[in-house]
Amino acid sequence: MNIIVCLKQVPDTEAPIRIRPDGTGIDETGLNLVMNYYDEHATEAALRLREQFGGTVTAVAVGPERAREALRQALAMGADEAALLRDPQLDGADHLQVARALAAFITPRTPDVVICGKLSTDDNAAVVGPALAEVLDLPQATAIARLEVDPNRARATVHRELEGAVEVLEVPLPALFTVERSLNEPRYPSLPGIMKAKRKEIAVMDLAALGLSPEEVGSPGAVLERLTSPPGRTAGVQVNGAEPEAAVEAIITFLSERAKVL
């Protein structure tokens, strides 16, 4: 089975974010950057399919030079190959442009399955996966919490978590899936895996190498203009050391007079 997993390198969600004074982005100095959390689940899903059916797992990322680290982690987890798609025209690309670049890499590789995280924790957009499915003309299932591929590899049965329901979908392969964290528990890279990953080559491809003209990538339709700090929340009233009855009274008063829900 030919499996492609799409990755992104993002700031550690536990790390504080410093917005550049001009608001154009974040200051990455000293920032801990990691493989997007959901992409670890995507990589795990890809590796499990390979373990079940054989084949290869190729990890691909669009991003700057530093994104090699996320690809390196995928290799250390067990991916067979990795490629970084890097081009000046992709700096500031919107999600649809990223999807076009990924599609140019993926199409000639004729995958059985393409797997992405359900979103990346930096911009939280959840756009690249379904947009990529469209460009690749593959059926999709997003935010899947369960994945079973039938033995003859013709179709997958997946579970999606909706609001208050679980949807069971049958999806013919090839297909694209974006994965929820409840799908699996990502493995840690093993020491031999890490050593092996260090020796592996990460292919770097620009748009020309992908066979994409600047016109085909286009210009961004959506542009991040600036980042600002969220309106600060400040601590309000604190009730400390009160008897439970007094604490309850304080909550009731708050719910009815401030929040007006009682």
């Binding site: 919107d94 999600h95 649809l96 999807a99 939280n124 957009a125 959840a126 756009v127 690249v128 996966g129 379904p130 947009a131 990529l132 499915a133 469209e134 460009v135 999709q140 997003t142 935010a143 999606r160 978590e161 909706l162 609001e163 949807e167 339709g221 959506a222």
Partner: peptide
Amino acid sequence: TAQGRDLAPRLAARLGAAVVTD
């Protein structure tokens, strides 16, 4: 919603529309 997030990017890619989520 789960369905809205599933649909909007795919439709945007199909129509060449600009999309923003959340």
